[in-house]
């Protein structure tokens, strides 16, 4: 094993100060320009609920909401999230109460190994905000940027439908 003799300092690449609000909590962090949003969340903020599955913008395991939109955080630089809001799986549960999408995935057995689950749920949350009463096909289209290897999607579709139903009932109850 050849051992480096150079000093172990950072590379002198200019860093950028960013201000990002994640799940309602503001963070001021200095990052390299090339830091991917997913690594910023996982490494800088230690929020490891967001996963990395493919590196090529295919699998959606890294899906988070950036200013309310579902995006693949492995294909966004953290500097792009400066002054933005980010929502991750860790923020779904509020005051000890699960989000309907979390309940849906649990009730309908929408997860097995759990690795794609955060991305699936975040995609679904953004989707249901725009389409509260989706058809099965619309749900399938909505999650077609998220890969799951365990479930065959059938129960994920049911989970999202379950959440949609609960959210509609809650909304009607409030109205």
């Amino acid at each position: 094993m050849a051992v480096a003799t150079a000093p172990t300092t950072s590379r002198g690449q200019r860093t950028h100060k960013i201000h990002v609000t994640v799940n309602g909590v503001p963070h001021d962090v200095e990052v390299e320009a090339r830091t991917l949003l997913v690594h910023f969340l996982r490494e800088n903020l230690n929020m490891t609920g967001t996963h990395i599955g493919c590196d090529t913008t295919n699998c959606g395991a890294c899906t988070v909401l950036l200013n309310g939109r579902a995006v693949k955080s492995c294909t966004v630089f953290a500097v792009q999230a400066d002054q933005a809001t980010v929502a991750t799986v860790e923020g779904l549960e509020k005051d000890g109460k699960l989000h309907p999408i979390q309940e849906g995935f649990h009730q309908e057995h929408g997860l097995q190994c759990g690795f794609c689950t955060a991305g699936m749920m975040m995609t679904a949350v953004a989707f249901l905000a725009t389409n509260p009463k989706p058809t099965e096909l619309q749900i399938r289209e909505a999650i077609s940027g998220n890969l799951c290897r365990c479930t065959g999607y059938v129960n994920i579709v049911k989970s999202i439908d379950h959440a949609a139903r609960v959210m509609r009932e809650t909304a009607e109850g409030k109205a």
Binding site: R42, T48, G49, E90, E93, H106, Q107, A118
Partner: peptide, 21 residues
């Protein structure tokens, strides 16, 4: 029976190898 392991996964609290620091 609903799965016990779901509780951590749906909260993003699973612990996979890359989560070990």
């Amino acid at each position: 029976v609903k799965r016990k392991e779901d509780a951590r996964f749906i909260r993003g609290k699973g612990k996979y190898v890359d989560d070990v620091k």
